[in-house]
Computed example of a mutant assay.
Amino acid sequence: MGVPGTRGAPPPEIEKSELFAVDAYRRSFDSTVLAVDREQNRVALARTAFYPGGGGQPHDVGTLRWDGGSARVTRVKRDAGRIWHWLDAEDPSSAEASRAPLPSASTEVLGELDWERRHTLMRTHTALHILCGVIWSEYRIAVTGGNMEPGRGRLDFPLDHIDTGLGRRVERRINEEVDRAREVLVDFLDRSEADLDPALIRTAVGLIPREIDPLRVIDIVGLDKQADGGTHVADTAEVGRVAVTGTSSKGRSNKRIRIELRDPPAPG
């Protein structure tokens, strides 16, 4: 199946072309080259499982293979309505130039993600949503900013101050939610419905362009629900242990909480 727990059919154009949005566990895929940009050494594909980056989550990397060639995918980004994949030579230490030969338009290709990196980002992203839910449950304040890399990330909140025990309390609460193995669901909501949902208003849905309709929503059942385009694990237990590595002030009413993944998730 796709993303475990998916509720509601995604828009047909998303389901057909943006595989990462409907199946976060897909490691490889076949596709066709739609367009070639030789100046930037990049290609656009008919469909892709490579996440193009956004919302603080980095883009995926991996490999693209075709009959007679292969290349490393080093960058993925939305640009002018398409998702572009930048290609470099698969062996960067070779004497050849690092720019890879490009497949021609209409070429059939096989894409393969760097799965270890992607899965770590899925765990990290879900851990940040757990942090967001924990802070909301205690303070009823929304996140104001954030960023992540594989295995670590941070979120900012409009807290007036940070007491000495905040990091320890938050770390304990995050890991309690990990232990609860809460299901992580993916839904697609009509914009009119999403705008009326109090659980989404706290994530500043009003800042999302009106033309994005329906909204993709991530729901950690019973804890956190918000519009989000990134990739996540199927339940909180898959995140594994999380440590709060720091809290700091980034202004009069803006405080930062940093987290890192520690032990890998339990097998099974």
Rank of each mutant, 00 (worst) to 15 (best):
W84K: 07
I208Y: 01
D195E: 15
R169M: 13
L113C: 10
R262N: 00
L19A: 06
D197R: 00
P11A: 12
S249R: 08
A127G: 07
V239W: 05
F188G: 05
I218E: 01
R47Y: 12
L87M: 12
L200P: 01
G2D: 06
E211D: 13
V61H: 07
E177R: 08
L159Y: 00
D114S: 12
R27I: 05
D190F: 02
E176G: 08
D224K: 01
D23V: 03
H125M: 10
E108L: 14
S17I: 11
L45I: 09
H85D: 09
E90Q: 13
T120W: 04
G240V: 03
D67H: 11
T247R: 02
C132L: 09
A243H: 11
K225S: 02
S248G: 12
R216A: 03
R256P: 04
L113D: 06
P267Y: 01
P10N: 13
P52Q: 05
G251A: 03
V221G: 02
R75Y: 13
V217F: 09
L87C: 12
I174Y: 02
P198L: 10
G62D: 05
F20R: 07
P103A: 12
D235S: 14
A105M: 12
K16A: 15
E13P: 05
P10S: 12
L128P: 08
H161C: 11
H59P: 05
C132G: 14
A234R: 13
P267D: 01
W66L: 02
R38I: 08
W66V: 03
D187R: 15
G206N: 07
D67T: 11
R180Q: 15
D190K: 10
Q57A: 09
E176A: 14
A46G: 15
P209M: 05
D30K: 13
